[in-house]
Amino acid sequence: MIEARDLSKRYGEVVAVDGVSFSVDRGEVVGFLGPNGAGKTTTMRMLTGFLPPTDGSAEIAGHDIFDDALAARRAIGYLPETPPLYPEMTVSSYVTFVARIKDVPRRARAEAVDRALERCALADVRSRVIGTLSKGFRQRVGLAQAIVHSPPVLILDEPTVGLDPIQIGEIRGLIAELAAGEGDDRHTIILSSHILAEVEAICRRVILINEGRKTVDASIDELTRDGKTLEGLFAQETARDTVAADSAAGGGGAS
């Protein structure tokens, strides 16, 4: 469903993402893991077509993000780190607007909106103005806009950041539900997080990104087989790079 080939993003001299490749099959739930500033958001933004990669290419549901951009974007539901909401709109008019710009056909629109609101438990607040909602509700509205056009691929950037434990539980439950559906309801999901427990709870596979590079790509079962923990791996992977960089710098100085 998702094919990334050598995605790179450079800003002048700064390399934000450096040759990241991976592929995700239908129905998989993959966690993007990495410290802040590792390039998770940039990678997601390239997949969604918000930022063009400096190098490399990607395909979403068989559509190239460049050559077939509109079809690729139609196949994606995207929840950026801050949910893209218009505070002055009501919940249902906002989700209806998103359904329109995502090309949900007119006849199916009302039903699609109702379904998205239902799934995100927003039916009771549908006529409330978004600006008056709590953070947890706003996050759910963000999720509702991502799923309203039943996209095969969902890309969620830190979907639980800044929520309280109960809200986190709700959002996680919802994501698990979206991944478990049948037919059109079965979504392929990439979500980023720096909360390890979260990734462990929702995802079956982990891609670890550190300093713009993919360092680990394996299933959680594999990674934790010998009694190891994700914490250990995370610390080891992010630390090894620092040590390697330090020794490289030190070695350079000595010679």
């Binding site: 077509g49 918000f50 079809a71 974007r73 909401l85 218009y86 090309d103």
Partner: peptide
């Protein structure tokens, strides 16, 4: 400033 630019630019809009 709302971040909604990201929604518009990742939607199938020109």
């Amino acid at each position: 400033s709302n971040g909604t630019q990201e929604l518009l630019l990742t939607s199938p809009l020109t």
